[in-house]
Simulated scan of single mutants.
Amino acid sequence: MKKARKLQDVEKGTAKYGPTIFADLTEDEFGVRLNSKPWDLSIRPKDNAVIPQDPAPKAWDWRDHGVVTPVKNQGSCGSCWAFSTTGNVEGQWAIKKQKLVSLSEQELVDCDKVDQGCNGGLPSQAYDAIMKLGGLETEKEYGYKGYDEKCFFKKSDVAAKINGSVKISENEDDMAAWLAKNGPISIGINAFAMQFYMGGIAHPWKIFCNPKKLDHGVLIVGYGVEGSKPYWIIKNSWGESWGEKGYYLLYRGGGVCGVNTMCTSATVP
């Protein structure tokens, strides 16, 4: 509670910090839900995303356009990277094929041999794994267990395929323009303040969430402005009882918590 109070005392946004479902965990216990080591910022797709030249709409939310599945729950497994990846592919597939399908994170936890399953991974690497495997099965066919097991992937059950990946500009105006035109963005973030986040637009001091030390994979599904505060709408994978019904609103425009440093997307054929 002292940590939550400290965050609250210096909060620059409208966020409330307090007794969340994770507030009683030690840093190590909470860390199980994150990557075991910070993301390697040099591992990203080779191709640059094309940024639309038209100005972005003032606000945009892909949840209103039927391309975002309900909030999922990774449990006590550091598979956030897999949820960030599937969320992005679900969006890309739904926009391209006009069909929203919930895709399997467990397939990535079990069958992606470059990443470390419940000990963490990177969306940039997961895209390559999906292409090598031949696609993703549905959540229904390859359900989530929340622990590492052997790979049960069946190529005949593939429900979505990708043919590449792109890195997206670190400029947050460019990110918004790309997102509004192309779909939700997979990102990495420093999750320190998220342990105590209860709602509102979060804008923690840099000292509490080093933008160079990303440890959690999430999905930007939209953005907006409240009063004078622009914000991102971020889908998390800790269930609907956390944050804003499973979502995190984060100040947009200051590179807060490294939100703009590892922005990527799959491409769909």
Rank of each mutant, 00 (worst) to 15 (best):
K58V: 05
A49G: 08
N163Q: 14
Q195C: 08
S237N: 12
G217N: 08
G255T: 03
D28W: 13
W205E: 15
V32I: 15
D112E: 12
G13E: 01
V71R: 02
E107K: 13
E141I: 12
P230H: 12
E137T: 10
N73S: 12
V109T: 14
V101F: 02
W238D: 00
G254E: 12
V67K: 02
N190D: 10
K3Q: 15
N190K: 10
C209L: 11
S104C: 11
D64S: 10
M1F: 10
E29G: 05
H216E: 00
P52W: 06
M131E: 14
I207D: 15
K150A: 07
Q74S: 13
G222T: 00
G200K: 02
S237Q: 14
I168V: 07
K150I: 12
K181H: 11
G91D: 04
P123T: 08
W238L: 06
K6V: 12
Q116M: 13
Y223T: 02
D174T: 05
C151N: 08
W205T: 10
W238P: 01
T85N: 08
D64Q: 09
D40H: 13
A202Q: 02
D215V: 05
G66H: 10
M194A: 14
S79G: 09
D173Y: 07
K245F: 01
K154W: 03
M175K: 07
L219Q: 06
N48P: 07
C118V: 06
G164L: 10
P184S: 10
G120W: 07
E107C: 12
E90A: 07
W81C: 04
L250W: 00
K132S: 14
D112Y: 10
M1W: 07
A4H: 13
G135A: 14
V256K: 01
G253C: 04
M198N: 01
G117M: 04
G222H: 00
E149V: 14
N182T: 06
Q125I: 05
A59N: 07
K72W: 02
F22R: 00
A56T: 03
K206T: 11
H216I: 01
S156L: 10
F192A: 13
K245V: 01
W62R: 04
Q8H: 08
L34H: 06
M262R: 10
P57L: 04
L179N: 04
M194C: 10
V50A: 09
H216Q: 05
K37E: 15
A94D: 03
G224M: 03
K97S: 08
V68C: 02
Y223E: 01
S156G: 09
P52H: 07
V268F: 11
T261E: 13
D28M: 11
S186F: 07
L179H: 03
G18L: 10
S241V: 04
E107M: 14
S84D: 07
D24F: 09
K12V: 01
A49N: 06
S102P: 04
W242P: 00
K140M: 11
V10T: 15
H203Q: 11
N88G: 05
S104W: 04
V32G: 02
I51H: 05
E27H: 08
Q195A: 11
W238E: 02
K206E: 14
S76G: 07
I21M: 14
T85L: 07
Y144F: 12
C257E: 02
T261S: 13
A126L: 09
V225K: 06
